[in-house]
Amino acid sequence: MVLSEIDAGKNLTAAASRGNVKELRRMLEEQHVHPDTVNEFGRTALQAMMMGSTSVACLLLEHGANANVQDRLGVTPAHDAARAGFVDTLQVMVQFGASVNTQDNTGALPIHVAIREGHIDVVEFLAPRSNLNHQDTSGYTALDVARALRCPGLVELLERQFESSLKFQA
Results as ranks from 00 to 15, higher is better:
7 D>S: 10
8 A>P: 12
9 G>Y: 10
11 N>E: 00
13 T>W: 08
14 A>K: 15
16 A>F: 08
22 K>E: 08
25 R>F: 04
27 M>E: 09
28 L>T: 10
29 E>V: 05
32 H>D: 00
33 V>C: 02
33 V>G: 01
35 P>W: 03
35 P>S: 08
36 D>P: 12
42 G>D: 05
45 A>Y: 07
50 M>I: 02
51 M>T: 07
54 T>S: 13
54 T>G: 04
57 A>E: 01
58 C>T: 13
58 C>Q: 14
59 L>A: 11
62 E>L: 07
63 H>K: 15
63 H>Y: 05
71 D>S: 12
74 G>Y: 13
78 A>M: 06
81 A>Q: 09
82 A>N: 10
82 A>K: 14
84 A>K: 12
86 F>Q: 14
88 D>T: 12
91 Q>R: 15
93 M>I: 11
94 V>M: 08
96 F>N: 06
98 A>D: 00
99 S>W: 01
99 S>A: 04
109 L>C: 01
114 A>I: 07
115 I>W: 11
119 H>C: 02
119 H>S: 14
122 V>W: 04
123 V>H: 11
123 V>A: 05
130 S>M: 09
130 S>H: 13
134 H>N: 08
136 D>Y: 06
139 G>K: 14
143 L>G: 10
146 A>I: 15
146 A>L: 13
146 A>E: 03
147 R>V: 13
148 A>H: 14
148 A>C: 03
149 L>T: 15
